[in-house]
Amino acid sequence: MPGPTPPPPLPTDRLQFAMPPMHGSVEEERRYRKERLAGALRIFGRLGFEDGVSGHITARDPEFSDCFWVNPFGLPFRHVTVSDLVLANSDGQVVDGRYHVNQAAFTVHAQVHAARPDVVAVAHCHSVHGRALAALGEVIEPITQESCAFYEDVALYDAYTGVAVDAEEGRRVAEVLGSRKALVLRNHGLLTVGDSVDAAAWWFLSMERSSQVQLTAKAAGRPVLIDHRMASATREQLGGDLVAWINYQPLWQDITRSEPELLS
């Protein structure tokens, strides 16, 4: 005998699906970017990306486009709240906030923001696997579905000149990055950008994991590369900032539900 008739599918407009919000005012957008920045910093802290006072995520202010919100110098990522964030101008001078900023790191961020008006956020930390990949002078290779998101969209800054302390060094980094979303700084670490804090943070997370997979695979043998056609097609599917934003949302929900005080 035939079984019971299954219920009909629900209309798709009744199902929830997160998309980047539209903002009604500059103030609303500023608050949104600051909340996402504080959340991203806490996630990076959870994952051990912090190394002393090294590491930054910056978010362009929606009104003052040459000013950027950034984590306070010396404050642990895991403790950052929205009210702790610092606004600095392109010269690294604090214009709003209670803390100093890391001038050496901010030099690079400011130049990347200046060269890329499409970029809202820049992420750079001294993560373990990113540094290991950087020590080899390698970029992400198309050996997994996730790594294909970086195919022909990551560059190598093939130099090490010590701690970046001048604008010229930052401009060289920005020039090598070009229009790409990611950069391997040789003997240093990873840098990613995005049209939202969520996207830049996701690309850094994904790039760090891809670095780990690549290093592990090469330690075990010879990875099989995905061919150019399929790697390019996969990048077109997975490599956009909107996809990165969507991928990041479970992390955002987790951090805000478990640590809601970050929004204060």
Score class of each variant (00 low, 15 high):
Glu152Lys: 15
Met207Lys: 05
Glu50Asp: 03
Thr81Leu: 03
Arg229His: 12
Thr192Tyr: 02
Val122Asn: 07
Leu87Gln: 05
Ala217Ser: 15
Asn89Gly: 11
Leu133Gln: 10
Gly162Thr: 11
Glu261Met: 07
Arg209Asp: 11
Pro21Cys: 11
Lys34Met: 15
Ser25Ala: 14
Ser54His: 05
Arg131Asn: 14
Ala200Trp: 03
Leu15Tyr: 08
Arg131Lys: 15
Ala88Gln: 03
Asp227Cys: 09
Pro117Ser: 06
Leu238Met: 10
Val112Tyr: 00
Val154Leu: 07
Asp227Ser: 12
Val154Ser: 13
Arg33Cys: 02
Asp61Cys: 12
Met230Pro: 02
Thr256Gln: 07
Arg46Pro: 01
Ile226Arg: 14
Lys218Gln: 15
Pro21Arg: 10
Ala159His: 14
Pro6Tyr: 08
Ile246Arg: 15
Val70Pro: 01
Leu238Ile: 10
Pro142Glu: 10
Arg78Glu: 09
Gly178Phe: 01
His129Cys: 07
Tyr248Cys: 04
Ala159Asn: 13
Leu191His: 03
Val119Phe: 01
Pro260Asn: 06
Arg33Lys: 08
Gln249Cys: 09
Leu177Ser: 05
Gln249Asn: 13
Arg60Gln: 12
Gln16Met: 09
Gly3Pro: 11
Leu190Glu: 01
Asp96Phe: 06
Arg78Met: 05
Thr161Ile: 03
Asp118Trp: 08
Cys67Leu: 03
Ala182Ser: 13
Pro4Asn: 12
Ala38Gln: 06
Pro260Ile: 03
Ala231Arg: 11
Val86Asn: 01
Gly170Tyr: 00
Tyr32Asn: 05
Arg30Asn: 04
Leu238Cys: 04
Leu183Trp: 02
Gln145His: 15
Thr192Pro: 04
Leu251Met: 11
Arg78Phe: 02
Ala114Asp: 05
Thr234Gly: 06
Pro260Cys: 05
His124Asp: 01
Tyr160Gly: 06
Asp195Asn: 15
Gly194Phe: 03
Val154Trp: 02
Leu205Asp: 00
Val213Met: 14
Leu133Ala: 13
Asp158Met: 14
Ser258Asn: 13
Ile57Gly: 00
Ala199Trp: 01
Arg180Phe: 02
His228Gln: 12
Asp227Arg: 14
Arg42Ser: 04
Glu169Thr: 02
Leu251Pro: 04
Val80His: 03
Gly55Tyr: 00
Val176His: 10
Ala155Gly: 06
Lys218Met: 14
Ala115Ser: 15
Glu168Ser: 13
Glu169Ala: 00
Thr256Trp: 09
Ala134Gln: 08
Asp13Pro: 04
Leu41Thr: 03
Ser258Trp: 05
Leu37Tyr: 04
Phe73His: 14
